Amino acid sequence: MTERRRISSGSAFEAVAGYSRAVVDGADIFVSGTTGYDYAAMVLPEDLVAQTHGCFANIAAALAQAGASLDDVVRVRYIVTQADYADIVFPIFGQYFAKARPAATLIVAGLLQPQMKIEIEVTARRQG
Rank of each mutant, 00 (worst) to 15 (best):
M1V: 08
T2D: 06
T2Q: 09
E3A: 14
R4S: 07
S8A: 12
S9K: 04
G10D: 04
G10V: 03
S11L: 08
F13C: 12
A15F: 02
V16W: 09
G18R: 13
S20C: 14
R21S: 11
V23H: 05
G26S: 11
G26R: 05
G26L: 09
I29V: 15
S32T: 10
G33W: 11
Y37K: 11
Y37C: 04
D38F: 09
Y39T: 11
A40G: 02
M42C: 06
E46I: 00
L48K: 13
V49D: 03
A50C: 03
A50D: 10
Q51P: 01
Q51D: 09
H53N: 07
A57Q: 12
I59P: 13
A61T: 08
A62E: 00
Q65F: 02
Q65D: 11
A66K: 07
G67D: 01
A68I: 01
D72P: 01
Y78W: 14
Y78M: 03
I79S: 12
I79W: 01
V80N: 01
T81D: 07
A83Q: 06
A83V: 05
D84P: 00
D87A: 15
D87W: 04
I88Q: 15
I88H: 09
F90P: 00
F90Y: 15
P91C: 09
G94V: 07
F97W: 09
A98Y: 08
R101V: 12
P102T: 03
A103Q: 09
A103P: 00
A103V: 02
V108W: 02
Q113F: 10
M116P: 00
M116T: 04
K117T: 05
K117Q: 13
I118N: 05
E119D: 12
I120N: 10
T123N: 12
T123K: 13
A124E: 04
R125F: 02
G128H: 13
